[in-house]
Nucleic acid binder design. Structure first.
Length: 540
RNA sequence: GCCCACGUAGCUCAGGGGAAAGAGCACUUGCCUCCGGAGCAAGGGGUCGCAGGUUCGAAUCCUGCCGUGGGCGCCA
């Protein structure tokens, strides 16, 4: 699929050369989409940017560029104009619109919007990593939807992705969890700071009498977590056990490496990491005075292990909640102290979801009784709506979901609007088949019959998809796809409303052309939904 | 006090150096002989938190302030 932008940029550079403009070092002609239709399909600010260094009037320079471009038009360019303070605007011909349809139909939903720039680079995306001390809650759902969508986007852009879940199956929290199960099993009150949720009482009923409560509880929690995540179509390639890492001797190994890098010291009976030498606010304890590891030490060993597994050219992406933000500096400091390039660890921080029920905040407290389980959210609104809703907005915003409203507003959820657009296009194709229409290939179809403004809008919107997937992957921002889907679904509904495809009053050639557009639209919607992990139903 | 994110329409949010500020919901008003009305169209509604600065150009970048959320453990 030829990228129209590349040919336009080439043409711009050609025009600049012919105008004998000396380009500042590193100059790249900028190309953007104008907000207004009359400003064409693509617009360049090159004349505005260069006017000052070159020392000439921006409009004059733009005129020079335009006159060259008008006599040397790249493929699909119908007209080049000067506008405003000195923009160079490209207006594309209908032939370009037709190529958009052909590209989409030929690619199909699996391949459409794919890119190769990932170049097979290894990426480990670690997300959720909820403690195995209970069910995943509604807050984890956002990280689950986000991490999986980022992974899907990276895959679509040519990266080799591994989804990983880190299991904190040892340490203080696990001891407390085990003690809580044991106490509840004997009908005793749970220890102070123990776990007291309803699920503890429920699980204890299944627990055999003479078993290691800690270990049994961990397995019980993992089974529960996997099941719920699976219900949301989130699955992991690797479930990485902290206990297994500790058992392998990796901690001692990491400790030795830190010591020989002179990155540790002893004070007040504890062993400290000189993290402040590597950009952290203060030094951090690795081994407490009582001899126990802090959370940090195994986690450093874990990240070293991940770096080894991802290979020298690979990168790590961690999805952390905002409550772990303060942790980034010390982890990067530790990696730097060990001689790793800290930029190989990328931490995506997601702001925390706030939950309300009828306007009253519900705290998601780990050990208190008021847990809103992810399972309940999925049961209430369905996996598709849950995922789409979690990905509706940027991870930098802290959304408030009112559970009562989420349940009540299912029909208003944008996911249905988007899925409905897909189902409608499918129903048109079904209807055509039922009416005995035999669809020809796009190359034998006269796409020039697509002259309705609705049709053109839909094609232009579809043409953005490739840029959207690339940007969404690079910015780790799946909500860009969500936003595009809503916009595109809007143009599809408009087309559906105004442009009948099958019927006695529609010329057979027009039916053919519109069916091609219908196919292209289905590809775009299905591909977009696929990158979010949301289904594209044929009928609703 | 320090660190991070956010503050855009009544509400939920896109946009994140370019030309006249965008969507959904809500509200008002039209549109079903016709591919699914879970739809389409039109309308009202904005000092883009405040104040400076950088720039040919700022909602967008920088600084300060105000407000909101999160963090600042020998918890994880």
């Amino acid at each position: 699929m030829a990228d129209i932008r590349l040919s336009l940029i080439d043409a711009l550079h050609g025009a600049l050369q012919s105008a004998a403009v000396e380009l500042p070092p590193g100059f790249q002609a900028g190309l953007e989409r104008p907000a207004r239709r009359e400003h064409g399909d693509w617009s360049s600010n090159a004349a505005l940017v260069l006017a000052k260094p070159v020392g000439c009037n921006p409009r004059e320079l733009a005129s020079q560029l335009v006159s060259w471009l008008e006599t040397n038009r790249p493929t699909h360019v119908a007209e080049v104009t000067v506008a405003g303070p000195g923009f160079v605007n490209f207006h594309l011909a209908d032939s370009w619109l037709h190529s958009v349809i052909t590209d989409a139909v030929q690619a199909g939903a699996d391949s459409y919007g794919r890119h190769a720039f990932g170049n097979g680079q290894n990426v480990i995306v670690e997300f959720v990593s909820a403690n195995p001390t209970g069910p995943v809650h509604a807050g984890h759902g956002r990280g689950a939807a986000y991490g999986d969508a980022v992974a899907r986007l990276l895959e679509r852009c040519g990266y080799t992705v591994n989804r990983e879940f880190y299991i904190n199956d040892r340490g203080t929290q696990m001891d407390l969890f085990g003690a809580s199960l044991t106490a509840r099993h004997k009908g005793q009150p749970v220890p102070e700071d123990g776990y007291s949720g309803q699920y503890i009482s429920d699980w204890v009923q299944e627990m055999p009498a003479n078993t290691d409560a800690r270990q049994w509880g961990c397995q019980r929690a993992l089974v529960d977590q996997k099941q719920v995540l699976q219900a949301m179509s989130v699955s992991f390639d690797t479930w990485f056990s902290e206990q297994a890492l500790v058992d392998s001797g990796a901690i001692a190994h990491t400790l030795e490496a830190l010591k020989s890098a002179d990155a540790t010291y002893e004070a007040q009976g504890a062993l400290w990491l000189r993290s402040s030498d590597y950009g952290d606010d203060k030094d951090r304890v690795l081994i407490k005075a009582d001899g126990e590891y802090t959370y940090l030490l195994p986690d450093i060993a874990y990240h070293c292990d991940k770096l080894k597994r991802v290979g020298p050219d690979g990168v790590l992406i961690n999805v952390w909640g905002a409550d772990h933000h303060g942790y980034i500096a010390r982890m990067k400091a530790a990696l730097a102290a060990l001689g790793h390039d800290p930029s190989r660890l990328e931490v995506e921080v997601t702001q925390l979801v706030r939950l309300e029920r009828d306007g009253v905040e519900v705290r998601i407290a780990k050990r208190s009784g008021t847990i809103v389980e992810l399972r309940d959210v999925i049961d209430e609104v369905g996996a598709d709506a849950a995922r789409f809703t979690y990905l509706l907005q940027s991870m930098d915003t802290a959304p408030t979901f009112d559970l009562a409203k989420v349940a009540a507003q299912v029909m208003e959820n944008p996911v249905f609007y988007v899925q409905m657009a897909h189902a409608r296009l499918c129903s048109i194709a079904d209807r055509a088949r039922a009416a005995g229409v035999v669809q020809g290939g796009t190359h034998q179809t006269n796409l020039g019959l697509l002259t309705h403004e609705r049709e053109h809008e839909m094609i232009r919107q579809l043409a953005l998809f490739g840029e959207i997937t690339a940007a969404a992957a690079q910015e780790r921002a799946p909500h860009r796809v969500t936003a595009w889907l809503r916009d595109f679904a809007g143009t599809v509904h408009g087309f559906y409303h105004d442009c009948y495809v099958v019927g006695s009053h529609i010329a057979p050639e027009l039916t053919q052309a519109r069916l091609a557009l219908v196919d292209a639209g289905r590809v775009g919607l299905a591909a977009g939904l696929a990158t979010l992990g949301v289904s594209a139903p044929q009928a609703m």
